[in-house]
Each structure stands twice: as structure tokens, then as C-alpha cells.
Write a protein that binds this DNA or RNA. Structure first.
Lengths: 226, 226
DNA sequence: ATTTAGATATGATAATTGTCATGTTTTGTT
DNA sequence: AACAAAACATGACAATTATCATATCTAAAT
């Protein structure tokens, strides 16, 4: 019993908003809904996808295994994002692995539907194109940051990024809860280094922590990190 | 007196190949041809573009100024590539600066033409989409490399990348000639570090140099760098 | 041919980051 | 509650990379 895409609010946050009522009805008919538990793998590097996932709830990480055996987290995915678009479009195997950081709810939309709409609805394809263009810009900016900034700067920016894009709960604690290892993997450093920098931020009053939970105490201070 | 796009071979290498004869004729009518000297700026970060550049000849670098004042080269552009697509599509100012590394010849195609074709020719928009999807994958891979690999590894890979994608002349010398500063800027390190690593490669017989010209002497050796 | 600015090269040293060892805390399981 | 496993934390040290100083080489301009 799948609910109706026409009434799904999530769709407003991604390219599916450009679809017509008829197109949405068709998708409603063939999509499948899935619940994914924290830590579960949605797909893995090298797999072939036969559709895209629309994230209804929860957060996941997109990562790639480096030659040295360490995982690099390339992106964090919010509610509303589409997963697997890129691989679908270029008709290649998936380049990144997706792992749930929370319990998630996703809808799987088959490839044929997406391609049909890309071909026939230029509003939709234009929106997908815009989304990709935006992602590409973000990626280029990440490259520059990785290449030019220190671990301390990158970690400060990662915290600010999560704060801005995923928000905080009523107590001011970041909605995304990452392990220290995951932070290291976002920033591209050793786990111990990430731990050390977070400890330093704590000492300096820039953040406070309760277990894995992190609260940003001084946004301006974090922005000033050099 | 602009030559005809219909007869331009370059177009086979980019998304313009998906255009119809009529569409190409229209572009022929409104495009402008430009010669750009080595070192000249094609466009700079923050500018607004009113079209895309189709690279007919020559090579250029796309770079971004980091907060620390250093340039990071994000991509090298070959003959056949389109410049400025991304910014045009997302309707934002340009994120990267483009500077000629050679004497170049480019054609400028106005925004309206591109958008018209994106809207009306789904083969064209699909091809642009594919190109962007491919670029996005490449960018993600670069992020992983920047984050996880050493300067030595990154420089070896940069040399191999240039070898593979831009080729060599009759003497086996890389077709792309970069200054040591540019190499540092590709790899994301200090100029002195880039120089040192290149010197080391030379000592180890992996490369040979004559001034700025570099020849790869041992491809397999470079691939094995750790 | 000489000058000169810029690029290349290398040494010395400092700063950053990674690795290994080890201890503590947290978490989940029986 | 007791235990084991995992995550977190920190010290000591090694490796990598950046910075500063200075020397040499190259290429362009006079």
C-alpha cells in the first residue's frame, strides 16, 4: 500500500516538483516504499541501480573507498534529496556507497519512469540539470577546500555545514550525529586527528559535546578558525 | 566571417553533436569566433556569462582562488570541451576562472541559443545531462584523491592524467606544459613541494625534464608510487 | 651582449598530520 | 549487574608538508 506522490510534500524539495499530475500518478503506481535502519547499506560502489531513491525521512552518507583502504565521505544527504540520479543518467555503475546514518524512509522509483519523464518533460529535465549543475559547483568548492585548507579549518567548516543544512534540535544539538570516525572521513584525516581537533574546539569553547552529540557554541569563532 | 558549425569537426567531441542541421545553422549565424593568447583570461570567478565557449584549439585551466590566496586548478580543458555550461544552466555567476595555457581558438555561443535547444531538443539536453553526470563523478573522485592521497601520489597521478588525456608530441614530451607553480596548484601543495617531488621523480628515472617540458619515462613506475 | 625579472632548485627549519601504543569511557548484550 | 566490544581520548614519536632563505638558471627586453 503505497501512498500517493501527488500528496507527498517531500517532492517539493527535489526535481520531482516539475512533474505533472499525470506523471506523478504513474510514479505512484510503480514506486516502492522502503524502510532502512541506521547503519544499513542502501547501495554500494560498483552496483548497478535500476532507479533512484527519493529520501522521505532520515539522513545518509555517500562515501567512496580510497586506494589506501579508508572511506571518504563525499556528501551527506538530507530529506528530500534524490539518490542515484547521476549514475542513472550516465548509465554507469554507482560511484559512491550510501549508508543510513539514521532510520530512513525512502521511495524507489524505477529507471524507466525517470527516463521517460526526462525525455518528455523539459521542465523536469531542466530541473535535474540545474540540480546537477549546483552539485557540480559544490563539488568544485569541496576540491578547493580539501586541497588548500588545514584539517582544523575543514572540520570547523564541516560543523558549520551540518549546522546550516541539517539544523539543530530544541537543545541546540546538531541533528546529524556522526561518529568521530565519520567526522575524520568527511574531513579526510585520521580518526585520532579528528578527535584531537574536536577536543581542542571543546577546550576553546567553540563547541560542547555530550557523547556523540555536538553543540556549536560559537559560530563566529568557528568561522574565524585559521 | 564565421565558418560553419555544420562542418566543424570539434562539435563531435561535445554535446553540440546532438543538434540538428537547422539548429547548427542557427548557431553558425550568431556565434562569434575568438582568438585568445597564452596567459589571457577567458573569464573570471564571479563574472556573469551570456553564453558558452566551445574550445576549437588550445588548452586552458579552470581554477578557483582559495581563502588563503592560493589558486587551485580544478580542471584542465581540452580541445572540444564546452566552457561555462554549468554556470549558464544554474543561472549563477561563474565559479571558476579560465586562463589559456596555450594560444587558443574558441567560439562563443549565446545563452538564448543554448537554452532554446535545451528546451526543444531532448537529445541535446540528455547529452548535456550525461556530460554533467560524468563531470560530477570525476569531481567526486578528485575529492577522494585530494583527501586521502599524498602529494607525491597526487602529482604522479596528475602527470599520468595529462599524459592520458592530452597526449605527447613526437619526442614523447607532454603536450600540456605547466609551470611548477601550476603543478603545485593542480595538486594542492606549495610550489617548493611540487618542485621537490618532480626533482625526486627525475632522480628516480620516472620522468625527464628539459626546462618546463616533461617526459614520462616510466608509466608503470609512476602508477606504483605510494 | 647585458641586464633583469621571474622561474626553478635546494637547504634548514617549523608546523601539521599520521601512526602506534595505551588507557578510559560508552554501549550493547547476555 | 557483568562483561565484551566498540568508540573515544591522549601521549609519544615519525612522516609529511609548509615556510623562509638563498642560490642558480632561463628567457625576455633593452
Amino acid at each position: 500500500m503505497s501512498s500517493k506522490c501527488e500528496q507527498c510534500i517531500i517532492r517539493q524539495f527535489n526535481s520531482l516538483k516539475a512533474l505533472t499530475k499525470d506523471e506523478l500518478l504513474r510514479i505512484s503506481g510503480c514506486k516502492t516504499s522502503k524502510f532502512i535502519k541506521k547503519g544499513e547499506i542502501i547501495f554500494e560502489e560498483g552496483e548497478t541501480l535500476n532507479g533512484v531513491y527519493c529520501v522521505k525521512d532520515g539522513i545518509c552518507k555517500l562515501s567512496k573507498l580510497s586506494a589506501n583502504g579508508k572511506d571518504q565521505i563525499v556528501k551527506l544527504v538530507v530529506k528530500g534529496d534524490l539518490l542515484g540520479q547521476r549514475s542513472l543518467i550516465s548509465d554507469e555503475s554507482v560511484n559512491l556507497s550510501a549508508v543510513a546514518l539514521n532510520d530512513m524512509e525512502v521511495c524507489f522509483i524505477p529507471k524507466v519512469e525517470i527516463f521517460g519523464n526526462l525525455k518528455n518533460n523539459s521542465d523536469f529535465s531542466m530541473d535535474v540539470l540545474k540540480q546537477m549543475a549546483h552539485d557540480l559547483k559544490e563539488s568544485d568548492n569541496v576540491i578547493v577546500n580539501m586541497a588548500q585548507k588545514s584539517v582544523k579549518q575543514r572540520l570547523a567548516e564541516a560543523l558549520l555545514y551540518i549546522h546550516k543544512n541539517f539544523g539543530v534540535n530544541k537543545d541546540g544539538i546538531l541533528n546529524v550525529v556522526l561518529s568521530r570516525e565519520d567526522y575524520a572521513s568527511v574531513v579526510g584525516t585520521a580518526t585520532e586527528s579528528a578527535i584531537r581537533v574536536l577536543s581542542q574546539f571543546k577546550k576553546e569553547g567553540l563547541i560542547s559535546t555530550t557523547g556523540k552529540q555536538i553543540k556549536l557554541e560559537d559560530l563566529e569563532g568557528l568561522k574565524r578558525i585559521e
